[in-house]
Amino acid sequence: MRIEVLVDVKTTLGEGPLWDVEEQRLYWIDSFDGRVFRCTADGREVRAWDVPQKIGSMCLRKPGGAVVSLARGFHLLDFTTGEVTPIHDPEPDRPNNRLNDGKVDRQGRFIAGSMDTQEEGPNGALYRLDPDLKVTRLDSGIVVSNGPCWSPDGGTFYFTDTWSGEISAYDYDQRTGTVANKRAFCTRPKTDGGGFDGATVDAEGCVWSAHVYVGKLVRYRPDGSVDRVIEMPVRKVTSVMFGGPDLDVLFVTSMAKPPLPRFPGDGVLRGSLFAIHGLGVRGMPEARFAG
């Protein structure tokens, strides 16, 4: 196994690595600085787009461009012009919330959740954006929405409220895009200052989770047991995604500056985009939004 710094852009809050198999390009975001980045698998041809608000996540669209979950709702992003067009703000009455992590299901629907910006109150919710741009709330009572991903067969949805100490599993109805039967998939200690952050599922059905503020990546077997732990060179790792031509490179984002004073700092590699080689595991191709 080899860990390398792929791009050292010092993202204030790097998040959401997204490998696109069609373009063979990696996208990621800086949540706090409001930027979308793109590069090749080996870190070349870096390109960036500015968005007008903090950004929680993004997905690529089948017709081209992207959907971005900004602080004040879902928007379209045109990569050619840089134009950002509002779709819908599901929480106009909650100014202290912002949209956060999200991913696309096998049917081309974008699932993203919101969070309390102080990371204290259960004021967030989980939403589904359909290809016709209709927004539906799937769950509520969430402090910090993070880590949405699906089992290889699409029938199980994984999701975490970062400070709950657990990743939850839901039954996922692929026909309707609804969730049911929420239960604990795995847990982590609440006493070490860390929390569950971004996640992805590999081709063997194992869940890879970034443990933010403690600098660890953990692979969980489908039964929720720990398979392996990778110690990262920075503590504030935020999210993970498999990519590269063979989907066998694990890309890892990190943050240069913690969002709140109570969280720890890091060394010179803070905010870097990392690539991990030689894991012997492949990921799953990410779907594009169908709208």
Rank of each mutant, 00 (worst) to 15 (best):
R2N: 15
I3D: 05
E4F: 02
V5W: 00
L6K: 08
L6C: 07
V7A: 03
V9Y: 15
K10V: 15
G14Q: 08
G16R: 09
W19C: 00
V21L: 13
E22V: 15
Q24W: 01
Q24A: 12
D30S: 03
D33I: 10
G34F: 00
G34C: 04
R38L: 07
G43K: 05
V46H: 02
R47W: 00
W49K: 01
D50S: 15
D50L: 15
Q53L: 09
Q53P: 02
K54F: 00
G56P: 02
S57W: 07
M58F: 06
M58Y: 04
M58H: 12
L60H: 10
L60Q: 07
R61Y: 12
G65R: 02
G65P: 03
R72P: 03
G73N: 03
D78T: 07
T80W: 00
G82P: 04
E83R: 14
P86Y: 01
P86W: 01
I87R: 02
H88K: 13
D89I: 12
D89T: 12
P92N: 12
L99W: 00
N100T: 12
D101H: 02
G102C: 07
R106G: 13
F110A: 02
Q118W: 01
A125F: 00
L126R: 07
R128N: 15
K134Y: 01
T136L: 01
R137E: 15
I142M: 06
N146E: 11
G147L: 06
P148C: 09
P148N: 13
C149L: 13
P152F: 01
D153Q: 07
F159V: 12
F159E: 11
I167M: 13
A169P: 06
Y170Q: 14
D173Q: 06
T176I: 10
G177K: 05
N181M: 06
N181D: 13
F185R: 11
C186L: 11
T187D: 07
T187N: 04
R188M: 15
T191H: 04
G193I: 04
G194L: 03
G194S: 08
G195P: 07
G195L: 05
D197N: 06
T200H: 07
D202M: 01
E204P: 03
C206I: 13
V207K: 05
W208Y: 02
W208Q: 06
S209Y: 01
V212K: 13
G215V: 04
G215F: 04
L217N: 09
V218E: 04
V218H: 01
G224L: 09
V226G: 06
R228T: 15
R228K: 14
V229P: 11
P233G: 09
R235M: 14
V237F: 05
V237R: 00
S239Q: 02
V240M: 03
M241N: 14
G243L: 05
L247W: 04
L247R: 06
V249L: 09
L250Q: 11
F251A: 01
F251P: 09
S254Y: 09
M255R: 12
K257A: 08
K257E: 14
P258L: 00
P258Y: 01
P258E: 09
P258M: 03
P259D: 13
L260K: 10
P261Q: 03
F263D: 14
G265W: 00
G265A: 11
G267W: 06
G271P: 04
G271E: 03
G271C: 09
L273Y: 05
F274K: 01
V281F: 12
R282C: 12
M284S: 10
A287G: 12
R288T: 14
F289C: 08
A290V: 03
